[in-house]
Every structure is written in structure tokens, then in C-alpha cells.
Design a protein around this nucleic acid. Structure first.
Lengths: 258, 258
DNA sequence: GAGTGGTCTAGACCACACT
DNA sequence: GTGTGGTCTAGACCACTCC
């Protein structure tokens, strides 16, 4: 139950061992251990994790050290602190962060408002080479291809082409997608145990191809944003590749620099 | 020299005063004081600030409290910590963060390489209403309008239209811009004492207008990224508005989500 | 009141840079 | 060696939440 720490337990280490190039502070090791428990599902999304005092006892370190570990997990959005209540495993379901990864904002800066999702299809097929590469898969590994359309106030705004490793999403069908109300990533974490942690996006301006233009209800050739997203789970393992086309006629892609 | 702290000095506050809604922890107050010194130029960009121990003595708090204040300043990129050397006021000159605000990356993920800046013109004129609003200026306040072209390997990639409050940039001319080698924001902080801290960007896909297309060396109507940036200095005061057109044929706008 | 996270302190020791 | 930031500890008290 109480995993002992290899290096840097409170009262060992006298002089660094020979050939020890990989030094890491205690709180980093604790962070890694907590992260492992998160990954293994010891605490599920939305649940509380043990209190700082309990974790300090479990790992045999001071509360301050656990605190620093949890601080980092909180700034990485893996965990949410709530004073007086505890620390909770982050979720894509909560209202505050429901659209954490969607940077599209309506022009007037009004809150996004309700969004309709229409799933066009969900097919199992052989992945193009570039998809294989982006998802770290091997030739022959099956993938799921999902297409969907997001609309705001009845107007289509985002057309997504999504690629998923089939091995991780067994039983995902167009029906199942259509039945589900709520963010895709909430479904993924609840039904398939796949948690989306962070993502990288490559944004370009392109001319809308005729077929896509029809779905987006714009003229073929209209400039639209192409947003290529690679989504990663624990340990930076890629688990989704998605190409989105955004109609930016009355919305924009918002970004903060610092 | 040693400014005394109004509330929450180490040994006062017994029971919250009546009508005291604006509680803020000590380290936040320290952070504010340090930020004020930065803003007032007590320590200039690139210089060391006093050590944690000195600051702790100056503000009459513990080193740990100063540390927490500086930690936040460091994560906001106002300050850079260097172990064994000290804490330094952040700069737009350092190589590591020279292109902190430029998210454009060449397709092959190769490092950006050298960049040529060509300043087209720098004019003083009356600002359009939307520029006034974005910069929090009053009708009649003069502004500078700068146009410039960024090229990579001889190919034009970014066309910027920049608006600046003339009051803050007295004496800025096209010649002065052209003579300067290095990032624009480095010039601003060195010559005009205006430090760019953070920015908000609105990204859209648009058809390149004919005149701009010529400068960017693309066909008129080509889809290009429109990047509208509002840049802020201390206290979130807006000091720049810029509209960039990015040719994303062989570059992309990179973003990280978390 | 009991339990949780949040703040603040004081002191010890480590890793790093300059001299 | 001296001074800097970085880690770790132990203990006190505060603010918030729920019973």
C-alpha cells in the first residue's frame, strides 16, 4: 500500500551514488507516483483524491512536499483543488471547462451558447500513413474515422474529421455518438477510460474543398481555418488526430500569449 | 526605503476589520509591490533584482513568502530565475524567448532560422474608431501606423499593420525602425520603456486583399491567416494593436492546449 | 467541531555560479 | 568560500465546507 521511495527518502542519501545522472527532486517523484495512480484509475475522473495529509503519510514525506506535487498537477489541469472540500480528478464534464480545447468564440464575445453536434459517420478503416505516424501506430493497425458537424444557433461552423486508434475505442459507433449529449472527450473518459490531457494544434488558412464547403454551408473556395489537432493522454501518448475546418465568418479562434 | 505593509503584517490583524471584502494573501501584496517596482523601472530589463533574502528584509516578511511572490512573477514571464545567479527582469532580447509572441513555425518543424524585417512605412495619423477603442484612447489622440514585412529565406510570409499610441513612442520613425536589428519589442523596451507583457490574438481565415497579396507575393484572394493582436503592458494597459496576414502555405500557426 | 486546502514562518541542507 | 536560487521539513494559524 505504502510504496517506499527509491531515492531521497527523508533519511537516506548521503552523497550521491555513483553514476546517478537522473536526479529529480522528491516532489517530482511524488508527482509521478500520483500521476501513475491517476493513469491506473485508482481515483476516477470527478472523484476526490486522498487529502494532502493522507498522501504525505502514504509516501512518507512532509505535507509541503505533497502540496508542491499537487500544485503542479493542478496547473497542468490534471486535478482541481477546492478549498474545504478536497482535491478532485479533473473531468471534461464540468461546466467551467467543458470547452477547454475549443478555442472558437463568437464575434460579439458573447458566451458560446448551446452547440448542436451532428455525427455524420463513424467508420473503421486502414489509416493513411500520416495518421499512423501521428498516432504512433503500426502499419495495419485499425483506426476509426469519425466525421461530425458543430453548429451554433442552427448555423454549421465546425467540420471535424477525427481519427482514433480502434484498439482504444472498441464498440464506438455512429449511433452511440449520436445518443450521447455532451462533449466528445467526456464520453471518451467515461466510456473508454481515455483521458485527454493536452493537445498541439497547427492552424492554417485554406480554401474550403467543395464537399466540405457544402457541409459548412459556404461557397467552395471560401477561406476557412484548418486546425490540425494531436491530442495526448498520460505520458504524452497520442490518442487522437483531428482535422477541423472552422468557418470564421462570425467566429474567431482565440489565443492568449504570455 | 522599506515600505511598511498596510494589512497583514506579520504580527497585526486580529479578526477581520468590518467591511473588509478585499482580502489578499501576503505574498500577493508582495507580488504587487515587486511588480510596481518593475513598472517604475527600479530594475531595468535584463538586470538582476535583489535576492530573495534582501527582498524579505525589505518587505519584512519571510523568504518563503517572497519566494512564492517571485514564483508567480516567473510563471507570468515577468522575471526569470537562474539558480546560483539571481532573478532577472525578463527581456525580449534573450535568444531563448526572442520570438515569444510569434507562433508561426515552418512546416518541417525546423528552427525558424534567420528572419528579415522590412519596414514599409511609419506614419502618424488619426486612428479609426475601432483602433481607438482597442487602445483605450480618446478621439483625437494621435497614433502611429507601421507597416512591415517579415521574410524567411527570402520569401515574404508575414505582413503586419501595427498601431501604436503616439504619446508612448515619440520619435519613432521608419528610419529608426529600419536601422534596428532585432525584435520590435526589444526596441520598444530599450528605447521607449514600453514592456510588452502579454497579448490576446483573434485568428481568422480571410482572402488576401489585392494590395496585401502583392506584398506577400501570393495571388489575390489566396486564403491567409488574419491575426489580430492586442498587446498589453503592466496593469493590462493596451499599448499595441496589430493586424497580421500570415501566408500559411509553408508555415503554420502553432498552439498548445492544456 | 472536524476536516480540507491555503498561507506564513523559520531553519536546514543541496545544487549551482562566480571568484 | 560565498552568495544565489531550489528543496524539504515541521508547526502554527486561517478560510472554507459540511455535519
Amino acid at each position: 500500500m505504502t510504496a517506499a521511495l527509491p531515492p531521497h527518502s527523508p533519511a537516506d542519501d548521503a552523497g550521491n551514488d555513483a553514476a546517478g545522472p537522473a536526479f529529480s527532486p522528491l516532489y517530482q517523484q511524488i508527482k509521478t507516483l500520483i500521476m501513475r495512480s491517476l493513469q491506473e484509475g485508482e481515483w476516477k475522473p470527478g472523484e476526490v483524491i486522498p487529502s494532502e495529509i493522507e498522501l504525505a503519510a502514504r509516501y512518507r514525506v512532509s505535507q509541503g512536499t505533497v502540496r508542491k506535487a499537487i500544485d503542479e498537477l493542478a496547473t497542468e489541469n490534471l486535478v482541481v483543488r477546492r478549498q474545504g472540500k478536497g482535491t478532485f480528478v479533473a473531468t471534461h464534464t464540468e461546466a467551467q471547462v467543458k470547452y477547454r480545447f475549443l478555442r472558437l468564440v463568437p464575434d460579439g464575445d458573447a458566451p458560446p451558447g448551446p452547440m448542436e453536434r451532428r455525427y455524420i459517420d463513424c467508420r473503421r478503416l486502414r489509416a493513411p500513413a500520416e495518421v499512423l505516424r501521428a498516432l504512433d501506430l503500426r502499419a495495419g493497425d485499425p483506426v476509426l474515422q469519425v466525421r461530425r458537424l458543430l453548429s451554433f444557433q442552427g448555423k454549421p461552423v465546425v467540420l471535424d474529421l477525427i481519427w482514433l486508434p480502434a484498439a482504444l475505442f472498441k464498440g464506438l459507433t455512429a449511433e452511440r455518438l449520436s445518443e450521447y449529449r455532451g462533449p466528445l472527450y467526456a464520453l471518451f473518459e467515461a466510456e473508454f477510460g481515455v483521458r485527454m490531457i493536452r493537445a498541439e494544434e497547427k492552424v492554417r488558412a485554406v480554401a474550403a474543398p467543395p464537399a466540405d464547403a457544402t457541409l459548412l454551408d459556404v461557397a467552395p473556395g471560401t477561406p476557412v481555418l484548418s486546425v490540425e489537432r494531436r491530442t495526448l493522454t498520460y505520458g504524452d501518448r497520442p490518442v487522437e488526430l483531428r482535422q477541423g475546418l472552422y468557418n470564421t465568418a462570425s467566429h474567431y479562434y482565440r489565443n492568449e500569449l504570455s
